[in-house]
Design a protein around this nucleic acid. Structure first.
Length: 570
RNA sequence: CGGGGCGUGGCUCAGCCUGGUAGAGCGUUCGGUUCGGGACCGAAAGGUCGGCGGUCCAAAUCCGCCCGCCCCGACCA
């Protein structure tokens, strides 16, 4: 394609509402434009990149046994009532009526539709497994859309659903999708990690999030370089290592006044005790029960972990007003000694000695408190967030923390939807059974945004070869110079003949603009035809990623280009 | 939904406090020079100042309501 034939509105400055790097660059490089909050148009270059990502997804899905379908965008209320989600989904579900005042939604996800299709058509185990997916726009009325393509309201998503006859087969399918996803993101040229994730309210046993590693990512990932364990920080287990000898403390609890010191930080400074020598006590309401959760002063309580430890449906911190009645003190002076509530202590506290805790009396703390002798927790459990340096639960080596952007998520759904929606098949033994399902999503637009978030510099995007709108940018430095223009035109034609994915910048503008634009858009390979071509018959090939420049004669050009191309695919 | 901010040519923004002729840079168009990192000279086009209402002789500017957008928070199968 010629630059003059493509609609590429590049911008020198980013609009002020663009906050993240990817949002700014997507905008400045002319890949997208905003229509409304969280709603974007894809311009030619953006679409091209989206299509390349989609093509890779299709290849991967097909290779691991999934088939593409296309489901309706608009779905009637009745189907969503069958699964119970018309009520449960909340305001993210866009609901509207047609002229007959019949209610519909624009699907944010398609479990209901796919289950309806499969339950009507697949009656026998002989028809299983079925693994169907689509690539289509979705709509979720997010409370706060942000970061451009990263969290839009309308977005392109690949959503897939599998139907198996039993757990064993479903697990196998899950494994295949795991492999397919790993292959897909590798093909996209992304640095990513598959992490164990919380299954959320959807339940189920397995869930992995595929995270593109980027400093600006929204999610924290805990990972172990030694054994490859990786998990969302919400979920990451901690392999404790004993950090102190067993045995009692050396002193008895002593009550000391700590006027006006209610935070770990203030108490730490006032009593000259490090935060790790303090036991932080939080009152948590789990279902209808109140419990005290204890973590070291320098740690954060993880409510999700506590929730699963307690087996509670619902969990949250008790309000400031509820605490005095339960403990005798306000938040900031609460502690485990003499407390009448059930106490859950973080495992790490097994090894703390002579610690500082609240005294359950406003403006007083105890020093010299040792768990086991001065108070007895109902149990020790892993209830805190993992931090850098914590031991890996698998191999005990120290783990690191990186940030990531969730681009894919695979779930083993089980029979939740098939049971609710009466989706059953006849098994080999002649009995009716619900399908065992899995669901698998990839945010296509988000993958593009994440790729940019991960690969950019001050000049612009650095596209991975496989998802770049064009692989090669051919730049003629001066279109008014007929020697250069003619040569460039001829080389462009040859490139097309050879099947290269090339865009030819044939605009009659200053060289600076062309070069800036090429860097901004981030074409992986740039071929420049300029003064050196006139003088020495040489053209210049520049690799965007490394900045490396090689010169080439016309004869060697294609050989060199394919070598560079191969190098970029590694 | 709670808190904060913004809305002025296509983009970035000044002007508003203290009411009186609507501005700059970039971009665009035309002419010329230039041609390896957003080049230069000259000319030009382009604005219901988010909308409605109010105060006033007079409103981009002051007041009220509404709309839109952004940021922080809660939320996120």
């Amino acid at each position: 394609m010629k630059f003059t034939q493509v609609f590429i509105p590049t911008l020198k400055e980013a609009p002020k509402d663009a906050e993240t790097v990817s949002h700014k660059l997507l905008f400045r490089a002319g890949l997208i434009r905003k229509l409304s909050s969280g709603i974007y148009s894809y311009l030619p270059l953006g679409l091209r990149s989206i299509q390349k990502i989609s093509a890779i997804i299709r290849q991967g899905m097909s290779r691991w046994g999934a088939q593409e379908v296309l489901m309706p965008l608009v779905i009637q209320k009745e189907l969503w009532e069958e699964s119970g989600r018309w009520q449960a989904y909340g305001k993210e579900l866009l609901r509207f009526q047609d002229r007959h005042e019949k209610w519909f939604t624009i699907g944010p996800t398609h479990e209901e539709v796919i289950v309806d299709i499969v339950r009507n058509e697949a009656k026998s185990y002989r028809q299983l497994p079925l693994n169907l997916y689509q690539i289509a726009p979705k709509f979720r009325d997010e409370i706060r859309p942000r970061f451009g393509l990263m969290r839009g309201r309308e977005f392109i998503m690949k959503d897939g659903y599998s139907f198996d006859m039993d757990e064993e087969h479903a697990n196998k399918t899950y494994g295949q999708m795991y492999d397919a996803y790993s292959w897909i993101f590798r093909q996209c040229g992304l640095n990513f990690r598959a992490v164990e994730a919380d299954t959320g309210t959807i339940g189920g046993k397995f869930s992995h999030e595929f995270m593109v590693l980027a400093n600006t990512g929204e999610e924290a990932i805990v990972s172990c370089d030694a054994c490859g364990y990786a998990a969302n920080v919400e979920k990451a287990e901690i392999g404790y290592r004993q950090s102190a000898a067993d045995g009692g403390g050396t002193s008895k609890p002593q009550k000391v006044p700590t006027p006006g010191r209610y935070s770990v930080e203030d108490v730490s400074a006032f009593l000259h005790v490090a935060p790790k020598g303090i036991i932080k006590t939080m009152i948590v309401k789990a279902g209808n029960e109140f419990v005290a959760a204890l973590v070291r002063g320098d740690r954060e309580l993880n409510l999700l972990k506590l929730k699963s430890v307690l087996g509670a449906d619902d969990i949250g911190l008790a309000s400031d007003a509820e605490c005095p009645g339960l403990t005798g003190a306000h938040v900031g002076s609460i502690g485990p000694v003499g407390l009448k509530l059930k106490i859950i202590a973080d495992t790490e506290l097994r090894y703390i000695r002579d610690a500082v805790t609240g005294a359950n009396e406003d403006d007083f703390h105890y020093t010299g408190v040792t768990p086991g002798s001065d108070f007895v927790p109902a149990m020790f459990a892993d209830i805190r967030n993992a931090v850098r340096g914590d031991a890996c639960p698998r191999c005990s080596k120290p783990m690191g923390i990186t940030r990531g952007i969730e681009v894919g998520h695979i779930f083993k759904l089980g029979t939740k939807y098939s049971v609710r929606m009466h989706a059953e098949f006849l098994a080999e033994d002649g009995k009716s059974r619900p399908f065992v399902m899995g669901c698998y999503g990839i945010g296509v637009g988000r993958t593009l945004a994440a790729a940019i978030e991960q690969n950019n510099d001050n000049d612009g995007i650095i596209f991975p070869l496989t998802i770049s709108p064009y692989e090669v940018a051919l730049v003629a430095i001066n279109m008014k110079d007929s020697v250069i223009a003619d040569a460039a035109g001829a080389i462009y034609d040859t490139m097309l003949d050879r099947g290269l994915d090339v865009i030819y910048d044939d605009r009659d503008i200053s060289p600076g603009m062309k070069l800036k634009d090429a860097d901004l858009i981030g074409f992986p390979i740039r071929v420049v035809i300029g003064s050196r071509f006139k003088k020495e018959d040489l053209m210049e090939i520049k690799i965007r990623k490394t900045g490396e420049v090689v010169t080439s004669t016309r004869q060697d050009l294609f050989e060199k280009l394919s070598a560079i191309r191969r190098g970029l695919l590694l």
